[in-house]
């Protein structure tokens, strides 16, 4: 008999866990995090058309300050050369450069990142300040061939694949709230990581699902994203 995992059995939980339960989610452990594994069957097909996943319980952290680029470099972080670009580390940890002196790091889809763990406890250099991105920001993943069309309904930036390239970042207004949007394709599937104010997560989730309904989009679990990565 399989063990049923509850989204409330750890201290860190998504603000959306009640909505996930209403949608019939099955939860699973990813690293130290508990997230939606799936809601229904064949979510990989859904992910290829249009899917929205909640990754808000997965690890992430940020740093800013004049000393950040040199310090991060000394810690082995591979950084993009320009602001508003991202790069992937060897273990697929995402490093987004939000300005000359600000970095946002988000874990891979296994829910664990040695780099984030190391940086979180590392001694910071002069003029390097940690940002609690795991607490301040939610993390959604909008994926599939209709993802850019969905974003066009709620945002002024042109996210179509031919104009907004992989690992490019837009810091802008999304459904009237501030968001950091990073294109991080998963395998050959179009994917946008959306980091936004955690206090507005329920609003943003509902707004995106509403915008997605035109394209038959729906919520998907983390397992579908992981399957896309391995296909």
């Amino acid at each position: 008999m399989s063990v049923v995992i509850s989204p409330t059995q750890t201290l860190r939980r998504s603000q959306l866990y009640r909505r996930h339960r209403q949608l019939g989610a099955d939860f699973a452990q990813f690293g130290d995090s508990i997230a939606v594994d799936h809601y229904g069957d064949d979510e990989v097909s859904q992910a290829r058309v249009l899917g929205l996943a909640d990754l808000s319980t997965l690890p992430r952290i940020g740093f800013k300050g004049l000393g950040t680029p040199v310090w991060a470099d000394s810690c082995g972080v591979k950084q993009p050369a320009q602001p508003n670009w991202a790069t992937l580390q060897g273990d697929n940890t995402l490093v987004a450069r939000l300005s000359s002196n600000e970095l946002l790091l988000a874990s891979n889809l296994t829910g664990s990142s040695k780099l984030i763990e190391t940086l979180a406890t590392a001694t910071r250099a002069h003029r390097v300040y940690a940002l609690p991105r795991g607490d301040s920001h939610s993390w959604l993943s909008l994926c599939g061939e209709q993802a850019a069309n969905t974003l066009a309904k709620v945002c002024a930036i042109d996210f179509r694949a031919q104009y907004f390239t992989n690992l490019q970042i837009a810091q802008t207004s999304l459904a009237k709230i501030n968001a950091v949007i990073v294109r991080t394709d998963i395998g050959d599937n179009l994917n946008y990581a959306i980091f936004s104010d955690s206090c507005s997560l329920e609003y943003l989730w509902d707004s995106l699902l509403d915008a997605m309904s035109e394209y038959r989009g729906r919520a998907i679990g983390l397992q579908a994203l992981r399957d896309c990565a391995t296909l």
């Binding site: 602001p83 300005s99 002024a156 837009a170 810091q171 802008t172 207004s173």
Partner: peptide, 11 residues
């Protein structure tokens, strides 16, 4: 200067 052209409502 950092993000390029944006709607004035973002400022």
């Amino acid at each position: 200067p950092l993000n390029g052209p944006r709607n004035i409502s973002e400022f």
